[in-house]
Amino acid sequence: MTEVLPRLETRDADADVGGTRDPWLAVGLRVLTASPIGTIGGVILLFWAIVALFAPWLTAYPPNRIDYLLIADPYPSRAHWLGVDNLGRDMWSRIAHGARTVLTVAPIAVLTAAILGSILGLLAGYRGGWIDALITRIGDTMLAFPKIILYLIIIAKFGASAFNIIAVIGLTSAPIIARIVRAVTLDVKNRDYVAAARMRGESAAYIMLVEILPNVRGPLIVDFFLRLGYTTIAIGVLGFLGVGLPPPDPDWGGMVKETYGLLFVYPHMTLIPCLAISTLVIGFNFLATGLKEAGQDG
């Protein structure tokens, strides 16, 4: 799902090129190749996306099969490419299946945040007045809390589940997205095309969703990928603190938590999931940077 690239607004110096609507794929490719850093990010994400998508076929062992006999020599071998963990479970299989969880939960959580944040930001920016004051204040209050404490409070109260993680991340990220959307809305709502829409008698909902929202997508898309990176970290942290996805399903943060005691004995057990988290986050960040650059001088 991460390789899905939305159309980006590109500024064309010459009004005469690019006559018709570009095919969707071509735009995606152009954005990816527009900056080297974006290309690297894209390749990393493509790798993880393929791993996640084809995990059952790319792995030889089920992720949760415990084989105590393997603990004697847990290091990477021909049979177990990345070795096995403290319970003798295949690391590669757990990493690959762990990618599935992260790449499902993170995008859904961020999408939730984006939708919620966009609605709030549009309302605050377009309506102004007390609605703006209310939304902004509540958002600011939420942002004033350290996020990790908010996560712990909510998950400790409602229990650790994929749904709760999505809800808590969606809720805590929404104010930041609302802030971005509000800022763009404040600018865009004074543009002449919004005045033209008002003079046509368009409804406020139409103006917000059709006239304003599409113009927010540039910063929103960049933020979306950056936030996917943050969310990957957040999921890892929750897993590490033991309030992530419930065991035994593989979860990168949980893998680190279960094995970090053995860091100096069997370093691969801890470092490999760490590396997986880092590369995925770097991939998201690079792609966000690449999209930003593509948007600037496309």
Binding site: D192, Y193, A195, M199, P214
Partner: peptide
């Protein structure tokens, strides 16, 4: 609606008169 239809406006700035997304 009819009154709205009867008065239309042409704006100054060609950069902001049309929605760049449409």
């Amino acid at each position: 609606p009819d009154t709205r239809r009867r008065i239309q406006m042409v704006f100054q700035n060609p950069d902001s008169t049309l929605n760049p997304s449409h």
